[in-house]
Design a protein around this nucleic acid. Sequence first.
DNA 1: GATGAATGAGCTTTCATTCAT
DNA 2: TATGAATGAAAGCTCATTCAT
Lengths: 200, 200, 200, 200
Amino acid sequence: MTKSTTSSTKRILVIKAAAKVFSRQGFHQARVEDIALAAGVGKGTIYEYFDSKHRLFEEVVQESLKFYSGQTDAVNLKKFSLHDQIHHLFYMHLKFSIDYHDISKVALGDYTLGSEEIHQWMREMRREKVIRVKEMLERAKETGEVDQSLDSDLAATLLWGMLGVLCSQVMWSDETHDIDQIAEKVAHITMRGLGLVPGT
Amino acid sequence: MTKSTTSSTKRILVIKAAAKVFSRQGFHQARVEDIALAAGVGKGTIYEYFDSKHRLFEEVVQESLKFYSGQTDAVNLKKFSLHDQIHHLFYMHLKFSIDYHDISKVALGDYTLGSEEIHQWMREMRREKVIRVKEMLERAKETGEVDQSLDSDLAATLLWGMLGVLCSQVMWSDETHDIDQIAEKVAHITMRGLGLVPGT
Amino acid sequence: MTKSTTSSTKRILVIKAAAKVFSRQGFHQARVEDIALAAGVGKGTIYEYFDSKHRLFEEVVQESLKFYSGQTDAVNLKKFSLHDQIHHLFYMHLKFSIDYHDISKVALGDYTLGSEEIHQWMREMRREKVIRVKEMLERAKETGEVDQSLDSDLAATLLWGMLGVLCSQVMWSDETHDIDQIAEKVAHITMRGLGLVPGT
Amino acid sequence: MTKSTTSSTKRILVIKAAAKVFSRQGFHQARVEDIALAAGVGKGTIYEYFDSKHRLFEEVVQESLKFYSGQTDAVNLKKFSLHDQIHHLFYMHLKFSIDYHDISKVALGDYTLGSEEIHQWMREMRREKVIRVKEMLERAKETGEVDQSLDSDLAATLLWGMLGVLCSQVMWSDETHDIDQIAEKVAHITMRGLGLVPGT
DNA sequence: GATGAATGAGCTTTCATTCAT
DNA sequence: TATGAATGAAAGCTCATTCAT
């Protein structure tokens, strides 16, 4: 029997260690013993709090997603210009990717494995995120910042894709990045496009 | 002892079967026996051609990347407008994702596992691809289609990100997509940006 | 350190709970935690009174055997006829099997496991029991109720065997049994044999 | 996937080794590795032929029961006197217990563990055996060798109980037994009973 | 004394790899 | 060359036992 969901210190300790190990080694490579070691507890202790390695993984992902959402949803910028909103969107995500490297890898990872359940969460989370972006664009249509004819669904997906590459690039590279500058550039490119608009 | 790299019929047979199995089950879930079964050969035969499961996986990825590059690089469109080049870029990749579903999943997959070596290839391949896109943008700068101030590195990366989401979306969804229309819309958005440019 | 053999209340509590659990699940299936739960004490408490699960089991068996012997030896019927003594022997054991189901299963169980020590007890206990029956038969020889040529050792063993099947049958079946009638029939068959004696 | 039921040499080898180990150590004490060692094969080989330790155990029991039944049912003695039939019944079983010590222990063992399925088999097998004995008695009633009033069900059970103790006694003791003599004595006691019939 | 969270030895089981045929 | 039966290292998981509270 697993202990109650009450957030005991040990439980959190294990989740954090697991996030680190899973993000580095992936699910299959990570040995339960590695996680125990990283958490500074015995192998058996993990099974006091989680039914199985699989379940632990799912909890780590879920927890990461929750934290991720909490962090990146935080600010509501409805009153700002679309340009600023996009800037902020990228800035926030890039910052998160840097600050919470491990969690980020787990939350954004492309987990082929895992119960259908976990896939469900990730798809849902992504959809939710994309929908949030889409709503942002819809609002911009209303204010006239964006053309009515824009396929906001597609555009939101594209923004999400850009967000993805940049985050993973930032996560994996060793260099330090000026994420504010990157966010600004992205916002600019996104708003104006690549094409040279005559008379600008 | 492993056979020479010479492409024997059996060898190719195994690689193809492996691509299918790996793309469906992922590296760890895929059992060598599954691959042997899918290839219609004995388990031992695989080891005649590949040193280990790991090596086989690497060869599959390498082969997939090669084939992928071959297919998506195929056309040279230097003389076309940037808009058309982008259109074509997306069209080609989307078409490839649909036509070669299995290979696509292997080639674009986010393989956390695997030797550093394989990661190397994938990063290299990606960089190469991104560079190709970057060059495309650089040429457009020269022709005046794009502003000199554009950070073509960043822009190329963003394009690559958009390419990624769309391909995976197309790969995983069950619906049929009008990829020509998608490509067109993407090209439009990419060129003009989201912002409503006054006087258009 | 284990407590003195002094029968504390807790100690008895645990033994009783253990008897129940062991009789239902067998030694290996029974978890120490199950027993603790059944006894309404903490897991650690059991180790205050018993050195190990094994020792606890041994004590349970020993205690059960003691109780069993106490109950079934109780009456001394030397002055009765052999027929009546046999009747009583079976009646007593059958009654015990029904009344003390759990203890019975432990006391009569065929424990393949366990220290040689415990096997020793069980064999000794059995031998003792068989000897008691043998003595009964020997006395019957003296009174002329039984032929001098009878192999009383063998006969006692056979009676013990009959006792065994009947008890286990009564223990495991759900029906209610008229054990007095059974005892009577057994006594009859045992005394007269199966063969139809001419002139009876 | 387990290999076909075809009686391959290895399969039988493992079953025999398992019978030996299980009969000595019991199910839980026996380690799969012990069995592999006893069979002179690798640990993994066992899993080529059996899905699990549990399944192996069940097959061993089933096989033992089958063999046991085959051996002890062999002779049909309907035309002999009841005395001779009983003699033979005991002789056969005792001989089997001695000749096939291991199998005997598995076939007659009191397995508390194991799937309900295996319990089913054992109960069925026992019932079948008892019924066979009962039929023997019923036939004897018809020929007038036995009193019509005999509770043949009970008597058969009692015989089965006697058979049990004797077999286990023979199995566990180190002495050599004159089983023909034992069988003769048992037949005598069984037929005539313990009671001294006046005028015999 | 009493507890139950923590532990790790020990077990079952999987599956990549070998090798006799 | 091709095979698949045989193998054993490696990993997940259980649970008797300990010990800080």
